[in-house]
Design a binder for these strands. Structure first.
Length: 551
RNA sequence: UGGGGUAUAGCCAAGUUGGUAAGGCAACGGGUUUUGAUCCCGUCAUUCGUAGGUUCGAGUCCUGCUACCCCAGCCA
């Protein structure tokens, strides 16, 4: 526990520690505020672990709040998917899920307050004009001709906006701040726009919708959020966040702190690009096992714990970062190495015939489910005269670094006997079609008395008792470490990100639930796909075994 | 001289009254092994973007410089 706490430390927790010590707060309240316009991804997991993790460790609470101020892009399916993913990761939000739209009435009231204070005005400038008047990064903007409209008139116009008397784009409500500010977001930001769009929560009640900068800070204040954590690109927006809170009548003063978003090598983590991958059918959906989404990782065979562990390991800072895939992979390997039952599966089968083994005999061998954990028990593996082994596990001849089957040499069949390769058949293309072997019946469960050593250990499946299965081998979705930096990232999609194998697996694999993880010995970790059934088994490779063998 | 941020190993990241560079991932040696896995043992920053300064002593303080990221949606 002590070690966990030390690992979890980061600059935000240190700020919280100080706030607590100074008596600024006695109870910590955070929130996770996704926009329901897409599925959650591993980058969101970082934010989820941060916000919910703080709530847990400080005995505070964390709200789930859908930031649903742009109904044109959002929908209820995403709301449901997000709830499912947060829950699956193992987190529980405080009370019911919230929506920014829950506060539309209050928000409207605060907008009125701003107008009454002379701090907001209805601007009828065209969108293009608004942009021109905003100035540039190095030049100040100019005031809108509508900036000095009196309060009474603004009140009338805003009311008409709400009633639907103005068209989309005809006008907007702007905060009156400073057109010369170095912070672009302070140059009279638009806080309400007209949108005749149906909203998944509020239906057709509204035709004006508040903007993020106006909504988020007030929502935080309403909910009593103490520490509002977001990503680095909102650093400038903090000035507006604070301005709004200072200029409306509200008690709570939440503080915003920014941390750097996660970047993962060989994938993309921006909502826009993930939507593109789905819409353009580069993947089969949001839960495609190649996707860095929570749903995709789940289907790939990642567990909640492994994702949470990953988030702990990467930490929270303000440094721009690019995390290696190996970091994520190490987390799931570590867990599955410990928990996954071992099985045997041959992905690229060639037949071997054990000539001195009886034709009709079937031996049910007991094989441990885990080599280092006898408490996990055993399962039966049928052994027969004809077996399949991995094509790459046989060579006619090889040097001694090749710890597999070679003509005239012996290997151990995992959990079974020593066999010796005698001769083989090949087809017209030179592909090995069958290897003829002999076995030593004294080698089950022990090495030969005469001290002979096997070249190595290979896995196998009975040719007559094994089951056919589809095995999906997933690789990185992109061929370059930072595809997001490319103009057209679809050009660098890895054509071999999915390879389907017609494999043969041991019968024990018939029993298993969807999502369950196994280690196929010497091959990798696999989980049962959602589409799998007893009649047609489908496995997804979660991650390969660590492989230090150099060819 | 727009503003806001960030620089510690290949990657992530500790380092907080200045006291002599944690840990993880990766990599590389060696041992164990009926998985080329796991496990075990060992190696991996004389140096903290850079140039100066203060100090007995600087990753931590001061000054200059450099590099990279973010900001000109009626997106979030």
């Amino acid at each position: 526990m002590a070690e966990r706490d030390r690992r979890a430390t980061n600059f935000i927790r240190q700020i919280i520690d100080k706030d607590l010590a100074a008596g600024i707060h006695t109870n910590i309240v955070t929130r996770f505020p996704p926009e329901p316009n897409g599925f959650l991804h591993i980058g969101h997991a970082k934010s989820i672990c941060l916000n919910f993790g703080i709530a847990q460790d400080y005995h505070g609470s964390c709200n789930l709040r859908f930031d649903d101020t742009n109904p044109a892009k959002e929908n209820i399916d995403y709301v449901n998917a997000i709830k499912k993913d947060v829950s699956w990761l193992g987190f529980t939000w405080h009370n019911e899920a919230r929506y920014s739209s829950d506060y539309f009435d209050l928000l409207y009231g605060f907008a009125l307050e701003l107008i009454e204070k002379g701090l907001a005005y209805v601007d009828f400038s065209e969108q293009e004009a608004v942009r021109e008047m905003r100035g540039t990064l190095k030049q100040p903007g100019t005031n809108s001709p509508y900036r000095d409209t009196n309060v009474a008139e603004n009140l009338i116009h805003f009311e008409k906006m709400r009633q639907g008397d103005y068209k989309e784009g005809q006008c907007s409500l702007r905060a009156k701040i400073d057109m010369a500010s170095n912070f672009m977001c302070m140059r009279d930001p638009i806080i309400y726009r007209v949108r005749f769009v149906h909203h998944h929560q509020t239906g057709d009640k509204w035709c004006i919708y508040p903007m993020y900068d106006f909504t988020h800070c007030i929502s935080d204040a309403i909910e009593g959020i103490t520490h509002s954590l977001c990503t680095l690109e909102f650093q400038d927006n903090r000035r507006l966040y604070d301005w709004v809170i200072e200029n409306i009548s509200i008690e709570c003063v939440p503080r915003q702190y920014e941390f750097s978003r996660l970047n993962l090598e060989y994938t993309v983590l921006s909502k826009r690009r993930l939507i593109q991958l789905v819409d353009e059918n580069h993947v089969q959906g949001w839960d495609d096992p190649r996707m860095p989404t929570i749903a995709g990782l789940r289907r790939r065979g990642y567990t909640p714990d492994s994702i949470v562990e990953f988030c702990k390991r990467i930490g929270v800072t303000k440094v721009d970062n690019m995390v290696e895939m190996s970091m994520l992979e190490a987390c799931i390997r570590e867990e599955l190495n410990d928990s996954a039952p071992r099985r045997m599966a041959v992905l690229d089968p060639i037949k071997i015939i054990i000539e001195n083994y009886p034709d009709d005999k079937v031996e049910l061998l007991q094989a441990p489910n885990h080599p280092n954990k006898p408490e996990m028990g055993t399962r039966e593996v049928p052994f027969t005269r004809e077996l399949f082994i991995e094509a790459e596990d046989f060579k006619e001849a090889a040097n001694k670094k090749f710890k597999r089957l070679v003509i005239g040499k012996e290997v151990r069949l995992r959990n079974a006997y020593f066999i010796k390769a005698e001769r083989f058949d090949q087809d017209a293309h030179g592909n090995v079609t069958c290897v003829y072997c002999t076995f030593d019946d004294s080698t089950l469960g022990n090495d030969p008395q005469d001290g002979r050593k096997a070249k190595g250990v290979i896995h196998w499946v009975s040719a007559t008792k094994g089951l056919k299965a589809k095995v999906c081998l997933y690789d990185r979705l992109f061929t370059v470490p930072n595809p997001g930096a490319q103009d057209d990232f679809s050009q660098s999609i890895n054509p071999e990100s999915l390879i389907e194998k017609q494999a043969v697996v041991e019968p024990a694999l018939m029993l298993g639930e969807q999502g369950q993880g196994f280690q196929f010995e010497r091959v990798g970790y696999f989980s049962i796909d959602g589409s799998s059934s007893q009649n047609s088994l489908v496995f997804n490779r979660t991650v390969g075994l660590r492989d230090s063998w150099q060819n």
